[in-house]
Simulated scan of single mutants.
Amino acid sequence: MSGSMLKDRVILVTGAGGGLGSAVAKICAAEGATVVLLGKTIPRLEKVYDAIIAASGPQPAIYPLDLAGAGEDHYRDLAATIEREFGALHGLVHCAAELGVLGPLNDIAGGVWQRLLHVNLTAPFLLTRELLPLISKSSAPGIVFVTDSVARAGKAYWGAYGVAKSGLEGFARILADELESRKVQVHVYAPGPMQSPLRRRAYPAEDPAGLPLPEVQAEQIARLLSPIETASSANFG
């Protein structure tokens, strides 16, 4: 990577304190982007912030927000803050996810079902909707939805998480079709197996040493956000 692929661009990363989210944030900053770190755990966001500063990246911004409890007003406030502070938003990466407990559908409590659909599907919709006017005004903008290749296959026991990821892909496809004339590129990216907290929860007996680090996938996501890539067709890989 060039080290300047995302120079002067503003990128919002959700789940920025997590495995993939933190890697995406650091890579984007290393490529010159000003990164807005969104997540629910402030110490984790501060750790990513410190790593970006230590690597001489552009000063990021921390925006604490728990997607499980956030409502429409919270997303409107976020959009207004980004526009006021930065004047533009060139990229949005939806890395935040909540797995829940894998098991049969008939064992899922209603409250758990609603929470997982909210965090993994409704929250990305609301966030995207509120940020879309600002994104649409920016040059060569891109939106990346991180999906899951296992959950999207309709595999048993993946429950509300799997349903939400399937819905997220459907939402992204509709959004891409609607935004074609506005030149906002929408990407759905399935990173596959990698070392991450979510992967460890899903496969507790697996040896993570044989899996690639999230940085490998983070580089691919950063490329999707570059002005060159966002000028191409939408990607649903």
Rank of each mutant, 00 (worst) to 15 (best):
D207I: 09
E169Y: 07
A123K: 00
E178N: 06
V186S: 04
G162S: 13
P208R: 12
P204Q: 14
D177G: 11
D107R: 15
Q185N: 11
E169H: 13
N120C: 04
V144P: 01
I108L: 15
E206Q: 14
V101W: 05
L126S: 09
L105V: 15
D207N: 15
Q195H: 09
L92E: 05
G100I: 02
R200T: 10
P124N: 07
R152I: 15
A190K: 12
R115C: 09
A172R: 01
A153K: 15
R152T: 14
E206K: 12
V119E: 02
F125S: 08
A151K: 05
V188C: 11
V184D: 03
S136D: 14
L121C: 07
L117I: 11
N106L: 10
I108K: 07
P193H: 09
E206V: 07
V150T: 12
E178L: 01
G111K: 13
T122Y: 01
V186N: 02
V144Q: 02
L102I: 09
P104F: 04
S136N: 14
M194N: 08
S136K: 15
G154T: 11
L89F: 08
V163W: 07
F125C: 11
H118Y: 08
V144H: 04
Y161I: 04
H90Q: 09
N106E: 15
A202W: 09
A172F: 01
L127Y: 01
L134E: 13
G111Y: 05
G170W: 12
G100M: 06
W113C: 04
V144K: 00
V188Y: 02
L131K: 12
S139A: 14
Y189L: 09
L116Y: 06
V186F: 03
N106Q: 15
V188A: 10
L179F: 00
L179K: 00
G111P: 05
R200P: 00
G103S: 10
P204C: 08
H94Q: 11
L102W: 06
V188W: 01
L132E: 05
V146E: 02
G103T: 06
S149F: 10
D207T: 05
G167C: 02
A172I: 01
S138F: 03
D107Y: 08
V119Q: 01
L126D: 01
P191F: 05
H118I: 04
A123W: 00
G210N: 13
V186T: 05
G192D: 06
A151L: 06
K155E: 14
L89M: 10
P208F: 05
P104Q: 09
L121A: 05
R129T: 04
Y157Q: 14
Y157I: 07
L134Y: 11
V184A: 05
A153P: 02
G170K: 12
A202E: 08
V150Q: 10
A140N: 15
G142H: 00
G170N: 12
P133Q: 04
V163A: 15
L126N: 09
G162M: 12
P133F: 00
G91A: 04
L175K: 02
A164M: 07
L126F: 10
P197Y: 10
S181D: 15
I174L: 14
F171G: 10
A190G: 13
A205I: 12
A140E: 13
S138M: 04
R115I: 06
G91N: 04
H94S: 08
